[in-house]
Design a protein around this nucleic acid. Structure first.
Lengths: 134, 134
DNA sequence: CTGCCACTTCAAGTTCGCTTGAGGTCAAGC
DNA sequence: GCTTGACCTCAAGCGAACTTGAAGTGGCAG
C-alpha cells in the first residue's frame, strides 16, 4: 500500500482528481510514475496535500505554497524568509482575532447602534490601524 | 468635510477608485450622491473599507462580507450566524497557528530531514486532523 | 479476446475581483 | 467661453485556480 493512484489519493484527501492533475501540471505535487496512463503518487502526497490545504486557508497562492514546500515537500527557503512568512501569519492572526471579537461583540451587544458602543468603536480603531502599529 | 468624493476616499484608504466603483456596483458600499457625475461618499465609508479589508484578509468573499456588514455597515445577521462565523474564524486561527509554528520550526530545526524530527511530525499530525477534532 | 471503466490529454469555460482602455462629461479656473 | 483634469460608462481583459467536455487509451475481469 505504498503507492496510490490518483483515484485513491482523491478519495482519501477529498481533493478532486482534476485538481491533483492541475497540481501535478504546475509542479506542486509530483507523481512517482504511471500505471498505463494513470498517475501514481507516493504516500507522502497525502500529508503534502494537507500542508497545501493549510497554506491555502492561510491565503497563500499555490505558487507561494510551492515555494515554501518545495517539490519534495521539504522546505528549502532561507531561514530569514521563513521567519518573515511566520511574522506575516502572526499579523494575520491578529487581524482575524479582531474580526472575530467584532463579530462576537456585535452578536451580543444590545446597543441600538454599534457605533454608539465604546467597545465596538475601540475594535474599529484597531481594525483601521496599520499592521505595523498593532 | 463631511462628504468625500471618490478620489479623496481612494487617497485616504489606499483603495483604488476603480475598486470603489466596483464595490458600489455590487452594493458593498453606497455613494451618498453625485457631484456632476462624480460619486460622493459619507465619512462612514472610510471605516467600512477597513472592515472590508479585514474581511478580505480573513478569506471571506465580497459577498460574504456584504452579508456580514449590510449596506449600512450595520450587521444584520442572526446572532447564531454571527457566532458560527466567529467559530469558523477561530478554526482558521488555529490552522494559521499550526502553519506558523511549522514554519518557525523548520527555520530553526537542525535535523537533516524534518520528517525525522518528532516535533515536525507532531505538527504534521495536527495539520492533517480535521478541524472538528482540533 | 473483448469489454469496461477509470483514467488520460487538450482546449475551452467559469468565477472572483478587479484593472484597463476608449470615448464621453462636467465643474472650476483662467 | 474654453480648457483642463478628474471623474464617468461600458466592454473587454486578466490571473488564479480550477472544472468541464470531448475524444482517446490501457490494464484487467470474465
Amino acid at each position: 500500500m505504498e503507492i496510490l493512484d490518483i483515484g485513491e489519493v482523491a478519495e482519501r484527501t477529498g481533493v478532486p482528481a482534476s485538481a491533483l492533475r492541475y497540481y501535478d501540471e504546475i509542479g506542486l505535487v509530483t507523481s512517482v510514475g504511471r500505471r498505463g496512463l494513470r498517475r501514481q503518487f507516493g504516500p507522502e502526497t497525502i500529508w503534502q496535500l494537507s500542508l497545501i490545504s493549510l497554506g491555502k486557508k492561510a491565503g497563500f497562492s499555490l505558487k507561494e505554497i510551492a515555494a515554501m514546500f518545495g517539490k519534495a515537500g521539504v522546505v528549502e527557503l532561507p531561514r530569514q524568509t521563513l521567519h518573515a512568512r511566520a511574522d506575516e501569519i502572526d499579523n494575520q492572526i491578529r487581524d482575524l482575532t479582531v474580526l472575530r471579537d467584532m463579530l462576537r461583540h456585535v452578536a451580543d451587544c444590545p446597543a441600538p447602534s454599534h457605533l454608539e458602543c465604546p467597545r465596538f468603536r475601540k475594535l474599529l480603531r484597531v481594525a483601521s490601524r496599520p499592521a505595523s502599529r498593532r
